[in-house]
Design a protein around this nucleic acid. Structure first.
Lengths: 239, 239
DNA sequence: GCCATTTCTGTACGTGGTACAAATATTGTA
DNA sequence: TACAATATTTGTACCACGTACAGAAATGGC
């Protein structure tokens, strides 16, 4: 694929018409459109219009729309703060929770991007480095390489799946009626919600989803931790 | 939305031109296109051509393309065999594993459908009944309603997320080169693979992914079980 | 001051979803 | 049996999308 990189990324002396665009500008516009209009709104034509340029100008910087999306995802993953969980002096559960929350926060800031991440492969350097950190962390937790790989997969699946499923209802901005069935499914989980913490108007959908999901997200995460530690303990005991 | 239902679903006596189509025929064609050409190939025009009809004829049966997709998903979920895990005499872990595997088998038969499920909300009757069964099962496992709701969410996220992430690489049929990075990520997990169980040619991608994922899927599932049981035990103990 | 090079625009093609009206086939009723 | 009402399908058309191609505009090196 090799879709990354600019138009003349390695050209030393630049000749020709002055650039009125930059890759970052394009990605900014794409992200903005994604955030306010969902994946459908982040079209090449829309992006170009947002930066005040003809649609084809984008193709000077990216060979494909897929490349734009890929770069967008990579940049978003690159913004995930690694420092939070890099301190190996801290207990691993704490570091892992910090990572999971940081990742979630970033993704929730850009709901429209999540479907795109799920849809396509994530093989960029940032995605890889994230995975590397995760493996390192799980090794610290006492897992052997095979189990660490599996556990990392498990955690990644959980993080992305959780966010994707949570945002599935909201990612397409529009009417989004409060269908009673959807509420019913989640009825139990609301039982413990403190009263008066969320508004009752149109924003209620997002807010409730946000609230409920943070709780559920953490709950599930800790069940995962329990399962992983139990497994690790059983391993070291039997050997 | 109320998108379901035929054109004149509740009309007793039908007058007019004989129907050459049926909703099921349309859904069959859509599924076939989805399976062989990915989500992109399942266009209204493609479906109509497959059943030998003008594109607009589809709109007699479904108001939207979204409605077609929704019906497709619902039908797929309806095919999930509930009996496997309905036998409340069996231990719950066994029943849950059976459900998870059955769900996975069904979805893996139609990889193209998975991105569609993730993208949109699943609120149809079949999706709801599946959730209901799950809650029932988790209650049998000794979880109180709140925890059961959270655990069901956790399991659903895991099942769908796992399958979606696994299929993300394959869902778009085409070149799909064996990028070295992607292999590298999964390197550890292959360590335990029995030798000579899978071919080495072009099909290797799918086959390996399939193999590795079934193992990882089950591994993760059992970590989840461990975490859930540990939590349930801690709960009943403290009360 | 010219030229090679880079960047952007104009235009156009194919495909997608879908609205509108006309054509067609069927059946209840006269 | 002929007619009218109605359900289904087709023809045509529109607009948005991704993107290919050729040409125009602007720039720095000579």
């Amino acid at each position: 694929m090799q879709t990354s990189g600019g138009p003349t990324a390695s050209t030393g002396s630049r000749r020709g018409r002055r650039r009125t665009l930059s890759e970052d500008e394009i990605l900014d516009a794409a992200m903005a459109l994604l955030d306010e209009g969902g994946p459908k709104a982040a079209s090449i034509r829309g992006i170009a219009a947002a930066v005040g340029v003809a649609p084809n100008a984008v193709y000077t910087y990216f060979p494909d729309k897929a490349a734009v999306v890929e770069a967008l995802i990579e940049r978003l993953l690159g913004e995930v703060n690694h420092d939070v969980f890099a301190d190996r002096a801290q207990p691993w559960r704490l570091r892992l929770e910090a990572l999971a929350l940081e990742l979630r926060r970033r993704l929730c800031e850009h709901p429209g991007a999540v479907p795109l991440m799920i849809g396509g492969p994530m093989n960029g350097p940032h995605a890889l480095s994230l995975n590397e950190r995760l493996l390192e962390l799980l090794a610290d937790a006492g897992l052997d390489p095979v189990d660490a790989a599996r556990a990392s997969y498990l955690l990644i699946v959980y993080a992305f799946g959780s966010i994707a499923l949570q945002l599935a209802d909201v990612s397409e901005p529009g009417p989004a009626p409060p269908e009673p069935e959807r509420i019913a499914i989640r009825h139990h989980a609301f039982a413990r919600m403190p009263a008066g913490r969320y508004p009752r108007a149109a924003t209620v959908t997002t807010t409730m989803a946000e609230y409920i999901s943070t709780e559920q997200y953490l709950w599930g995460l800790h069940r995962l931790f329990d399962g992983i530690t139990a497994h690790a303990a059983a391993r070291t005991e039997s050997s």
